[in-house]
């Protein structure tokens, strides 16, 4: 019998499902996604009804479809953070590092678990956001997209993949900062930074909106790349590279620090 990636993953899964807090935050991500999908759908549908005819022709229902993910992602990131920091807070990280002394394996186990949970839950969150927001648009008489429209399944999967990467981002922040409050706060701030881009000088703002990993990654579920935005694959690569870099940084400190 040896410690293997499979046994570590099994153990991490048990850790995850036997603590209510982490599951609650994940459920919260679902609730937030659906809640904001409802609100964005209603608000944009109303805006459509009150708009001038020439504005109505340029209305794109897909712009409403995944707006809620920008908020749900904060909770998804917190799920990743909690799988790590809950162990530091309770002192069980020491026990975990004793029974799985190879730190890389322990970190990989946690990352793999969060990735597997989010690769399953992420697309469901995106699907829910899409269906509810489009239903709300349709209810107000605004144009809405159907699941079968070209590009829609791809965008939903892109949204799910985006949330998966954000979950891993949370894991990395957890290992880097070790404290729940710090990791969630800084993690959320960095995710939301592009929202404040309009306040920056033009060139910086443009750069942030285009290349900041969380902003670039959103191209994965954008309707159609607008001028200047990165194509979805490039957005994915940029976000994935940033998350990988943070995970490697987390591994470096986790391996070298005394637990």
């Amino acid at each position: 019998m040896t410690v293997s990636p499979a046994t570590v993953l099994h153990s991490e899964w048990t850790k995850f499902r036997t603590i209510r807090a982490t599951g609650c935050v994940l459920a919260g991500a679902f609730v937030a996604a659906l809640g904001y999908a409802y609100l964005f759908g209603t608000a944009n549908g109303r805006a459509y009804a009150g708009a001038l005819p020439e504005e109505q022709t340029s209305f794109d229902p897909m712009e409403t479809a995944f707006r809620s993910l920008a908020l749900a992602q904060l909770l998804v990131s917190a799920v990743g953070v909690l799988t790590v920091t809950a162990e530091y807070v309770t002192g069980t990280m020491r026990t975990s590092a004793t029974v799985v002394p190879r730190r890389g394996r322990l970190l990989a186990g946690k990352a793999a678990l969060v990735a597997m949970i989010m690769i399953f839950c992420g697309p469901l969150i995106a699907l829910g956001s899409f269906l509810l927001s489009q239903a709300m648009l349709a209810a107000q008489g605004a144009p809405s997209a159907a699941l079968t429209d070209p590009g829609v399944p791809g965008s939903i999967m892109g949204g799910g993949l985006y949330l998966t990467l954000i979950g891993l981002y949370g894991v990395a922040m957890g290992f880097l900062l070790r404290r729940t409050a710090g990791a969630v706060t800084l993690g959320s701030f960095l995710l939301l930074l592009p929202a404040s881009a309009p306040l920056f000088p033009d060139r910086l703002a443009e750069w942030v909106v285009t290349y900041w990993p969380s902003s670039a990654g959103m191209g994965m579920f954008a309707p159609a790349p607008s001028s200047g935005a990165l194509p979805p694959p490039l957005g994915f690569v940029l976000l994935a590279a940033a998350v990988l870099a943070l995970l490697l940084g987390g591994f470096a400190v986790f391996r070298s620090r005394d637990v």
């Binding site: 040896t2 410690v3 046994t7 099994h10 048990t14 026990t95 029974v99």
Partner: peptide, 10 residues
């Protein structure tokens, strides 16, 4: 105990 045991295949 399960969390610990499973990590080592016990």
């Amino acid at each position: 105990l399960k969390c610990l045991a499973q990590s080592n295949g016990i």
